[in-house]
Each structure stands twice: as C-alpha cells, then as structure tokens.
Design a protein around this nucleic acid. Structure first.
Lengths: 210, 210
DNA sequence: TGATAAACGGAACAATGTTCCGTATAAAAC
DNA sequence: GTTTTATACGGAACATTGTTCCGTTTATCA
C-alpha cells in the first residue's frame, strides 16, 4: 500500500485520486443537500423544484449539480439513505424490545417508510434506468433486517415459523399501495396490524403448535 | 320546450347557450386532437409535450388549450374515451361469440387496455384532483360491461356464479400492475389466463356443481 | 504565506406548460 | 350574395422548470 502523508483529523475523510483530501465544505454541502432534499421531498413530493432544495441547503444550484449530476441521483441518494435508516432501525429496536414487540414496532416503522414513498413508486415503474438499482438495494438491505427480527421472534416462540421475509415485505408494500380506489393510510395500518396478528396466530406460545 | 329554428344537418350538432351552432371546424379539431393525443400518449407516454400533440393534430397550441384548458383535461378525455371503447367492445364481442369465449376474449381486451395505461396509474395516485373522477368512471363503465358478459356465461353454464365483477376487474388490474419487481406483460397475461380458467372450474357444465 | 486544484454560485440556456391577442372564418341575418 | 358577428384559430410571448458553464472563492498543501 502506498502511504503519502499522515492524516490530521479523525482519519475518516476519504482521499481523492490525486491524494488530496475531500474538502470539508464539500462534505458539509453534500450532507446539507441530502437533508434538504429529504425534507423537501417529504413536504412536496419528488417533483419539487431543484432550486428549492438548493435554497433550503443554502447552496447554489451549481453546487447541487456538482454533487448530484442528475436530478435522479438526488432522488436515488435520498431513497438509499432512508432504506438504510429503516434497516438500521431494526437493530436499534431489537436492542430495546423483546423479540415479539420488536418485530411489531419495526413493521410499523416500515409502514411509515413505505407510506412516505408514494412518489417513488411511480419513479420505480417509470422505466427510467436511473432507478433500476433501487428494488435490488431495497431488498438486499431490508430483507436481512426483517429476517433477523423474524428469527428472533420465532425462536422466542412469539410468531410462527412459516413466513418468508421477502414475501412479507412485498405484502406490506402492496397493502400500503394507494391504488385501492379508496381507503387511506389508516386502512393500510389496520391491514398490516392484521398481518402481524396473523403472524402470531400459530406461534408455539399461543397454543396449537405444529 | 323552447324551439328556435329548424336544423339544417342531421340534427346532432349540439347548440350553444346563445343558440349558435358549434362550428364545424371546432368539432373537427377537437376530434383530431383527441386522436392525436391517443396516438402520442401510446407512443411516448402521458408526459409527451403538448406541442407534439398539437402538431400531430395539425393545429396550434392555442387551439389545443381552447378545447382542453389543462393538460390533465386531455389526459382525462383520452382515458374516458378508451374506457368507453373497452366497454363498448363487450357488446360487440358478445354479439359475435358464445358466452364463454366472449368472456375470455373480452378479458384479454381488458388486459390490453390496462397494460397500455401504465403511465396513467401514476397519475391516478398522484393526488392531483383532476384525476379524482377517473376511478369512478372506470368502475361505472366497465363493471356493467363485465357483469353482462359474466351473467351470460353463468347462464350458459360456462362459468361459476360466485364471482364479483368489481373484484375481478381489480384483480386483473393488480395482476397487470408493474411493481412485481420482475416479470413482464407475458406473466400478467398468463396469470389472467389462469384466472379465467379458475372461473370455469366450478361451472355446471364441467361437473361438480353446488 | 503563496500556489493550486477543488468547489462554489448564479447567470444563462433549453425544454416545456400556459396565456394572450390579433387575425381568420363559419354561421347567421339581411 | 353581402354584411355582421360571435367563435375559433395560430403562434408568439411568458413562466417554470431541469441543466450547463464559467468566473470567482476557498480549503488544502508545501
């Protein structure tokens, strides 16, 4: 490995190809843009003007485009960021609650995530190749997270063992999907609650074990 | 009733509030715009530029906006037009085929309609109030059409009797929905075929009647 | 402290939805 | 057939975006 010079800071700043550290303001602005975009998308949907995001982040549009060359790059970044947050929430919740309640809490967390992503569903199926990688990322991050919770709950005897994490993720996403021609987010919440109860139904601690 | 003057033509030109006939060129252009929009939407999706539609119809954008004040008005008009066509196809098919085959044929016709409306599904759930009326129109037109075919097929003993037209419409629409994360239109077609077979399953003429 | 490459900001450009208004014309009145 | 008039037409002009460009600023390094 080729070492060039000792590092000053905490050592977590990535290096550029010509050995120059990434500038601090660039890191700051990138983070600010991501947070601003998250807030604006949540408030006005993914079709919100780019200038609004740049303004909210306190930078010019040029800076925005330097960090996210296409509008879709920003959308993808926000999405991945929120997928990560949702996945990370799993271990945090697992550390704080018993397996059964942890599973139920995380499922509601996941519902919130899905419900907030209304606009993205359209982007997914828009055919734009920029979003092609998202479904895979979604699955690769969230499936293990749910599987872990599921395994723990199964082992604790809180839920049945014959459910597949992937199917559960999709089933919930479908329950939350808006084209039910009526019935808002409350209905989705109720249906998911029902689903969770269903998970408990044949669990050993309830009775009727196989 | 207040009669004003005898009519010249076939008598099917609508009258204006001040008793003036709707100009022939206006009727022509309106129709041309609708057809152009249908073709352009099919080719390039509902996000196609309005100028492209106006050009294809051979009129100026001003004329387009005279007939369809908002972009969404044009989309709505095209959608209703195609819903009508799909609903009308039911009676045409019913006149030409036996009840059982007629049902199967119309279902595939309906699949084509749904598959072509990918872009509109996004518009439906976009929250834009301009599209609020579409689901109702969809249901009010298509449900009776399917119900008629279904009743005829039931009476002929070709299909079972315990299926609801509305549920069937939605089930097919869902089977055709793109967010299956893989599996194209062929899969949708196969699934709908399976559904139709399912309809036949407990029909009297097959056997096991209730 | 000075040199330098990276990053910044926002004006300028391009594409598109929408409005406006002078002109053309179909229908009616005579 | 001519005149009148309300209607419709066309497309330039405007507004709102996404995106690019480049002169200026600045963090980093020697």
């Amino acid at each position: 490995m080729d070492d060039k010079s000792e590092e000053r800071g905490g050592g977590l700043e990535p290096l550029n190809s010509t050995d120059r550290r990434v500038r601090a303001d660039a890191q700051r602005n990138s983070k600010a843009l991501l947070e601003a975009a998250m807030a604006v998308f949540a408030a006005s949907g993914v079709d919100a003007p780019v200038r609004e995001i740049a303004d909210k982040a306190g930078v010019g549009v040029g800076t925005l485009y330097r960090h996210f060359p296409q509008r879709s790059d920003l959308i993808v970044a926000v999405f991945r960021n929120e997928v990560d947050a949702c996945a990370n929430a799993a271990s945090a919740i697992a550390a704080e609650y018993q397996p059964g309640p942890a599973l139920a809490r995380w499922m509601q967390r996941y519902v919130d995530f899905i419900a907030a992503k209304r606009g993205l569903a359209a982007a997914f199926s828009s055919g734009d190749p920029a979003y092609e990688s998202l479904p895979l990322y979604f699955l690769e991050k969230l499936r293990p997270a749910l599987q872990t919770l599921l395994d723990a709950a199964t082992e604790a005897g809180d839920v049945r063992s014959d459910v597949d994490a992937k199917e559960l993720l999709f089933a919930i996403a479908r329950l939350c999907s808006p084209d039910h021609y009526g019935g808002g987010p409350d209905q989705a919440r109720r249906m998911v609650g029902l689903l969770v109860d269903g998970l408990r139904y044949c669990a050993p601690s309830v009775g009727s074990d196989v």
